[in-house]
């Protein structure tokens, strides 16, 4: 009797628990799981725009088309380079700035707040601000650089297709380093001073202290940030698209497939599926090897 009651109680609690998380599970399934599954499903079809013409099952044809398209592989390479460069760039810059900001100086509070601006300002306004300051002839930055004879005022840095990759990379590093800085600064503040003091007593110089204390303490936070930024930048679309038609990363390639000219949704979906698989595989590997979970 007693045992039975406990059984029902446990069951009841379990059911209650499920009830509590049900809304979350349902919402996540609708917003994330369903699109992912549907995306995989349509990647096997030639999707018709016309509701009177049924979608045509094409098997792996979309995948074959993609994997034999040199443009796809080019975009793939560009995306890898973009991700590596921007993640490394924002990490180095973020850590550097965080180390500086960890020292005490007059007005530190204001400077710390100012550094966050690139990250918290709405994207569209900073894209326009960048375009404006780099305007040939009339842009303030261009006028300044021209006045000290560093560049020709007629140079259009942002809109030159040859600079596309550099422009979007530098922009991304500049926009995202405050995120790294914020995380690293918080961790730096939690490293006890006693560690540095005893290192100093042992005769370790600044560099030695950095490599033996600071870096190991920062290891997991840096590795986690690298993972997050890696995922985000691999799929980066908005700012790349806003800055240049020539940057040619994979998300742009997918967008062009899906939405320009006559949309090729099936091909775009298979590209997205390939990306998804690559991402899942590399994240799993990364989490195991680097984060050591």
């Amino acid at each position: 009797m007693n045992r039975m009651r406990r059984g029902t109680l446990e069951r009841r609690e379990a059911i209650f628990g499920w009830k509590l998380i049900a809304p979350t599970v349902i919402i996540i399934s609708m917003l994330i799981l369903y699109p992912v599954v549907y995306n995989i499903y349509i990647s096997f079809f030639k999707i018709s725009l016309n509701p009177e013409v049924p979608n045509q099952f094409v098997g792996l044809l979309n995948y074959v088309k993609l994997l034999t398209d040199s443009q796809f592989w080019r975009s793939f390479g560009v995306t890898i380079a973009f991700t590596l460069l921007t993640v490394a760039g924002s990490l180095v810059l973020g850590v550097g700035v965080a180390l500086l900001m960890n020292r005490k100086f007059f007005g530190r509070g204001i400077v710390r707040a100012l550094i966050l601006l690139p990250y918290v300002t709405p994207l569209i306004s900073i894209v326009f601000a960048w375009r404006f300051i780099f305007l040939p002839v009339n842009g303030p930055l261009v006028q300044f650089l021209a006045s000290i004879h560093l560049m020709n005022p007629g140079t259009d840095i942002i809109n030159n297709p040859n600079n596309a990759f550099l422009v979007v990379s530098v922009f991304n590093i500049w926009r995202n380093f405050p995120f790294v800085y914020l995380m690293v600064l918080a961790t730096l503040q939690s490293i006890p001073d006693s560690l540095y003091e005893s290192a100093e007593i042992d005769g370790a110089n600044r560099w030695k202290q950095f490599t033996s204390i600071t870096l190991p303490e920062l290891y997991f936070i840096l590795a986690s940030i690298a993972l997050l930024r890696g995922i985000w930048n691999f799929y980066k679309f908005d700012e790349v698209y806003l800055l240049s038609k020539f940057a040619g990363t994979l998300p742009i390639y997918i967008y062009n497939m899906a939405f320009t000219g006559i949309p090729r949704q099936g091909v775009a979906a298979s590209a997205a599926t390939i990306l998804f698989v690559i991402m899942i595989a590399s994240i799993t590997l990364y989490v195991k090897k680097v984060l050591k979970w």
């Binding site: 725009l49 939405f259 320009t260 949704q265």
Partner: peptide, 16 residues
């Protein structure tokens, strides 16, 4: 330039 993007969504939603 968003006509096709919207068209795809409208077709799926049955609101062409």
């Amino acid at each position: 330039n968003a006509v096709f993007k919207r068209f795809i969504a409208a077709k799926a939603a049955g609101t062409l």
